[in-house]
Design a protein around this nucleic acid. Sequence first.
DNA 1: TTTTATTTTTAGACAAGACTAAACAATAAC
DNA 2: GTTATTGTTTAGTCTTGTCTAAAAATAAAA
Lengths: 223, 223
Amino acid sequence: MAILLTQSEENYIKAVYALQQHHQASVGTNELAERMDTKASSVTDMIKRLSEKSLIQYEKYKGCELTEEGIRTALKTIRKHRLWETFLVEKLKFGWDEVHDIAEQLEHIQSVKLTDQLDAFLNYPKFDPHGDPIPDQTGAIVQRDQSFLLNELEIGAEGVVIGVADSSASFLRFLDRYKINIGTCIQIKEIYAFDDSRAIEIHGETVNLSAAATQKITVQKQQ
Amino acid sequence: MAILLTQSEENYIKAVYALQQHHQASVGTNELAERMDTKASSVTDMIKRLSEKSLIQYEKYKGCELTEEGIRTALKTIRKHRLWETFLVEKLKFGWDEVHDIAEQLEHIQSVKLTDQLDAFLNYPKFDPHGDPIPDQTGAIVQRDQSFLLNELEIGAEGVVIGVADSSASFLRFLDRYKINIGTCIQIKEIYAFDDSRAIEIHGETVNLSAAATQKITVQKQQ
DNA sequence: TTTTATTTTTAGACAAGACTAAACAATAAC
DNA sequence: GTTATTGTTTAGTCTTGTCTAAAAATAAAA
């Protein structure tokens, strides 16, 4: 059942999954090479290997996509990654901008029991510190009911931050400076048409966020 | 300062350290091959690599030993291994016979901050679940005052279990069956000369332990 | 001290995963 | 419907870590 994969193979599977989720179509070699920070020729080699293991569906010059088994594999890795990120932030007091690289290593630890015990220890969290959903043992993901980007809210509307669309350290530090976190409550006070920035109230203070910033913050609308 | 090592290199360093600690002399190629479950020729290759990185002192046909830098490296890995074992048993409720293989993977995660935060989270433990000392950030190891093997105690003497000299799953399960754990108090009731077994009192009950078993349990003598 | 046995090292090969350079498809432009 | 351009694959090389088979050095025995 559970085929043993190298770390490199797991990383490729994860990347294919992410790209496939993004644009609902088969994934190209160059695109994947860009994402994996490697060369197209290396990608071709790896795709062939994964195709041998029937985790990927592949036809020459036609791109690739994950098989059912490949998707299950990707979800297992994502589950581990997000559980470890949660552990690092909740228990070890890391900032949410510091955890990605470490989780990238931890996600490759092989032990189903470890993953499940960690899940239990964290009290079966549904979302990680960036607001991304954590697949359960069966690979199921909780789907949130309608969420909005911050720039979709009208003046006066309130939202609770549930995620971010950019996990770069730079952006996460920006959020920290404004004390914006998962669960933070935000109200739109004003929208400036000239640059599409917003005045928002947060923790009682009013601050200005650029259009770029508001496009990267996901909220659950209140009431 | 901190040279990056592959997992394989780290494992070799750890093995050399262990063998060197055991018999205070330079470590032979075959011996190391046995320990690493590989062939002597592979060991020679690796020793050369580690010698290049000046972690190992090596002379052809004369065996090898760790340099100062090599010892520091070994202690870092041992620190991580034992902290993770402690985490798995204390927080994730693993049995002490289940943690070795997982810790063997976790010990290779690269992040000084992770190790130190984990140490803090566990409240700076001095010993792991098998009673082995955990090196601190500087590599210092707490030395226990005189410990004894269980078969060195005379009749009537009491001891508190502080470690085991065999971490095989089989032996650890044996200990679990008798509810023998780190911190368990044991008193010698009788010594049977014919097979060198002992009647011992433990948790109010009296049971018989073979000579082989009593040679593998380390205790701190009481009073 | 010469022979025998053991230990250790070399030489050459292999698989995984990457690379460069060059060839080959597929698509777009004219 | 040829040419450019872009995307993809092949061929050959490299490194890490391993292997086998054979040679060389050391240790033990005669």
